[in-house]
Simulated scan of single mutants.
Amino acid sequence: MASPEQLADVVRGPLRLLLSGPQSSGARATPEDAALPGRNRIHLVVDGFDEVVARLRDAGLDFRSDVVSGPGGRQVLVADPSGNLVELFEPA
């Protein structure tokens, strides 16, 4: 489990805010070639992370990163048809 310095998960009503500390995977810079047209991304929590990633790879989606593991979980970046980033995330 991530320590408070690594990740904070704040929930208020329907809003969920994830704050990444300097040692978390979320604090790593987005690779320059991954973020076209921008560096913002939507973050989707998925169940069955390995199966989802395998299914999307088999479907030919444009992955913009390798799977990254950190104290909060695992993530991978995929591009939508317009090049916007979608982060698939599985909590630890």
Rank of each mutant, 00 (worst) to 15 (best):
A2L: 04
S3G: 14
P4I: 01
P4F: 01
L7T: 04
A8R: 15
D9A: 07
V10F: 14
V10G: 02
R12H: 14
G13L: 04
P14W: 03
L15K: 02
L15V: 15
R16A: 03
R16Q: 13
R16P: 06
L18M: 15
S20F: 15
P22F: 05
Q23V: 05
A27T: 04
A27I: 03
T30Y: 10
A34P: 11
A35C: 12
L36Y: 12
N40V: 11
R41E: 08
I42T: 13
H43E: 03
H43Q: 00
L44M: 13
V46S: 08
G48S: 06
F49Y: 00
D50Y: 05
D50Q: 11
V52K: 01
A54T: 13
R57W: 04
A59W: 04
G60L: 05
G60H: 10
G60A: 07
D62E: 15
R64I: 03
V67E: 10
V67I: 15
G70T: 05
G72V: 07
G73H: 08
G73W: 11
G73R: 09
G73Q: 09
Q75M: 13
Q75C: 06
Q75V: 13
V76K: 07
V78F: 10
D80L: 05
P81I: 00
S82A: 14
N84V: 04
L88I: 12
F89S: 00
E90H: 09
E90F: 08
P91T: 00
A92E: 14
